[in-house]
Design a protein around this nucleic acid. Structure first.
Length: 273
DNA sequence: GATAATGTTCGATC
DNA sequence: AGATCGAACATTAT
């Protein structure tokens, strides 16, 4: 579920709630979400203090004072929740007990998410990060989007989802960005004019920052690091609105759903060309 | 019971 | 070499 705005929302919550706090013990309820053995995780984290919380694309990095970092990818249904000692949740897979009370819980209904240990100074070299392009919120990311788009004829929607081009955009925001930029999702990336490319650049930045301001999109599963839903769902212009009226002022179009690479794309054929 | 779901990865095939 | 596609992973809600 989580794309860049959701992961950034969680990052901010964890930074605020966990920085400087120490992990007392770790309980693993589902070892398959770990890339290392449960015992290595427990040994490495017992007594470790959180020294920083970073994000690259959809990947979260918890830095500890031990020169090790925990790399977390939430995939489809992962959640990270800072909570008190009570309230057991149904899909909790890993619990990090904090030395001063309370805990950080990793919950994941489908258990597709992954937690992985990396050395902090080599975080960028870990295989989970090495294949990622620059973060979609950075100038370098937006620059790279335009450069790669001009060279490839893959549909522009598919390019936006390609994490090796730029990291962070997922299926919801790809549709939203193309709607704001007024571009049809099946347009070959290298067919975009320079004015269309700058519209794409502006739309990417605007959609992501607006979604972060609203603390992410909750359709079903997403919760912030403190357990609240995000508020951006009510501002979605196309995603999940198949058959409904286009919201663009003066546009009489109807929102369509179309499959691209086995994933739904929502768009308005009237105002997106 | 079939279908779809905010994601990535692997292997096969151009 | 690079691009592209389908299947796989695991589980729930409709």
């Amino acid at each position: 579920m989580p794309e860049l705005p959701e992961v950034e929302t969680i990052r901010r919550d964890l930074e605020r709630c966990l920085l400087g706090r120490t992990i007392a013990s770790v309980r693993v309820l589902r070892a398959s979400v770990l890339q290392c053995s449960p015992r290595r995780l427990k040994r490495a984290l017992a007594g470790a203090t959180v020294a920083g919380v970073r994000r690259h694309g959809k990947v979260l990095l918890l830095d500890f004072d031990t020169d090790q970092s925990l790399l977390i990818h939430l995939r489809m249904t992962g959640q990270l929740l800072v909570c008190g000692d009570s309230a057991e949740r149904r899909f909790t897979r890993v619990i990090f007990h904090l030395a001063d009370g309370g805990r950080l819980a990793y919950a994941d209904c489908r258990a597709l998410g992954r937690l992985e240990f990396v050395r902090s100074d080599r975080a960028g070299a870990s295989n989970s990060l090495a294949n990622l392009g620059p973060d979609a919120l950075t100038e370098a990311g937006l620059d790279r989007l335009l450069v790669v788009a001009s060279r490839r004829r893959t549909p522009i929607k598919c390019l936006l989802l390609d994490q090796s081009v730029l990291a962070g955009i997922g299926n919801i925001y790809a549709s939203e960005i193309l709607n704001l930029a007024r571009l049809a999702p099946d347009r070959p990336a290298n067919s975009l004019s320079s004015s269309e490319l700058s519209a794409l650049r502006r739309a990417t930045h605007r959609v992501l920052t607006a979604a972060i301001d609203a603390r992410g999109t909750t359709l079903r599963d997403f919760r912030t690091g403190t357990g609240e839903p995000g508020r951006y769902a009510s501002r979605l212009r196309v995603y999940g609105r198949e058959g409904k009226r286009c919201l663009r002022r003066g546009c009489r179009g109807t929102i369509l759903r179309q499959l691209q690479r086995q994933r739904s794309t929502f768009w308005c054929a009237e105002c997106q060309r």
